[in-house]
Simulated scan of single mutants.
Amino acid sequence: MNRKHFLRSLTLAGASLPVIPSIPALAAAEQAVSSEALPAIPPYLKPGDTIGITCPAGYITPDSIKPAIQQMESWGYKVRPGKTVGMRDFTFGGRDQDRFQDFQEMLDDPSLKAIMCARGGYGMVRIIDQLNFSGFVQQPKWIIGFSDITVMHCHLSANYPVASIHSKMCNSFPDDWSKADPLQQDTILSIRRALSGEKMEYKTPPSAFNRMGMAEGLLVGGNLKTIESLSGSASSINTKGRILFVEDTGEYLYSIDRMFWNLKRAGKLSDLAALVVGGFKVKPDDPGEEFGRTVIDIVMEKVKEFKYPVCFDFPVGHQKNNFALKCGVIHQLTVGTEGVELKEKR
């Protein structure tokens, strides 16, 4: 997405988008939100606060996180790498026990105000049930990451309602900030804006395939394959009355179709406030095994009986234009003829 199409809250102040309002969706969302306790919002960071870095999934080297450390320190924060940075057990950032202990120590450490996961990959689901969140619930802090870290976002939403940040991680920070293009810089700076308490607000160009309307609700979601894999577990995501966002990478179209069927059959699509479809990097079909449907076809087939707004090509996912989103925070989505606006409400 071209940077001129991405506008921050100051740029969007006073902007309006012609829409077809979805009043029932708004009413349902307000009823759903009012009938349950809102997730806790961790304290926003101030200069001098400390961010921990840990590897609950894939491994990363100490050198690979240096750009992230330098950048976050330039924002006025202190950064403390965990014990798993530099550890490796094949694809993992250390053994399960190592990753569990490192994450647990950071959850329990009152001097840390945020935990940034160094990278995704695979591994969070192997330790999630061992983690004790009792201290974290009493003194919540921001947990940051995406991809495999969707496990954490969903687990918090389902069990310990605390807001978290879906965003790029250490392995996405540019080696040389001065040479990074504006879009890459803006995505990284969106993490700073989220951590500092700025109300996040995004505007994207229209898509001919969008379904127009307005909706309000808690924002939940993440990597589609990971959400599917958690179905029926203690980390299964609650989507009722919520704005769900999804993204994925490296999957065949038939696999994406199967994932959306899982969501539909599990009732995860029936009571949404809205659906936000982010980036999908599709694996090419094998010759002679063409699926014959696009991601848009797949999605619209599953939601055709519902009336809530749907938007495509939102700037979130395994791509350069992957902006920070606050999971578990109330947002308003407006899908109009001139574009899409997603803004944090409170």
Rank of each mutant, 00 (worst) to 15 (best):
A273F: 09
N210W: 11
E228Y: 00
S231M: 08
L253W: 03
S235F: 06
G222E: 11
G221I: 05
K225P: 00
L253D: 07
S233D: 04
D271Y: 09
N210S: 12
A274S: 06
D248K: 00
L230W: 09
E216G: 02
G222V: 09
G213S: 07
L253S: 09
L218D: 01
F260Q: 01
A215V: 00
R211L: 14
L253A: 12
L224N: 06
D257S: 08
F260G: 01
Y252C: 04
F260H: 03
S255P: 00
S235E: 15
K264V: 02
I237W: 10
E251Q: 07
V246D: 07
T226C: 04
D257C: 05
E228I: 03
G267R: 08
D248Q: 04
N210D: 15
W261L: 08
E216Y: 03
F260T: 04
F209P: 00
I256V: 15
G217W: 00
K240T: 12
S236V: 04
I243S: 05
V276Y: 12
G222M: 08
L244I: 10
L230C: 01
A208Y: 10
R242A: 15
S207Y: 06
G241T: 09
G217T: 01
S233G: 08
I227R: 00
A234P: 00
D248V: 05
L272V: 13
M259Q: 14
E216W: 07
K264Q: 13
M212F: 13
G217A: 03
N210H: 14
S229M: 14
E216H: 02
M212P: 04
L219S: 09
S236I: 01
D257Y: 05
N223Y: 08
A266R: 11
K268H: 15
L272Q: 14
M212V: 07
N238G: 09
L269P: 00
L272T: 14
G241Y: 12
V276Q: 04
A266D: 15
T239V: 07
M259L: 14
R265T: 02
L224I: 08
G213C: 08
L269G: 10
M212H: 14
S270F: 13
S229R: 10
W261H: 11
N223W: 02
M212R: 06
V276H: 07
I243M: 02
K264D: 12
R211Q: 12
Y254Q: 07
G267A: 06
Y252F: 15
G232E: 05
A273V: 12
E228P: 00
V220Q: 04
M212G: 07
T239F: 09
R258I: 04
L219A: 10
G217H: 05
I237K: 02
G221E: 11
T226V: 15
S236D: 14
L263I: 13
L263H: 13
V220P: 00
E216L: 03
L275T: 01
S270T: 14
S255E: 13
L218N: 01
S235G: 11
A208R: 09
L275M: 05
F209E: 10
S229A: 13
S229W: 10
T249P: 00
A273L: 08
E247V: 06
E216F: 09
T239K: 03
K225S: 08
S270Q: 14
S236Y: 07
G232D: 08
M214Y: 07
I227L: 10
R211N: 12
L218V: 00
N223S: 02
K225W: 06
I237T: 04
S229E: 15
I227H: 03
A273Y: 06
L224A: 15
L275Y: 09
F209L: 02
D257P: 00
T226S: 05
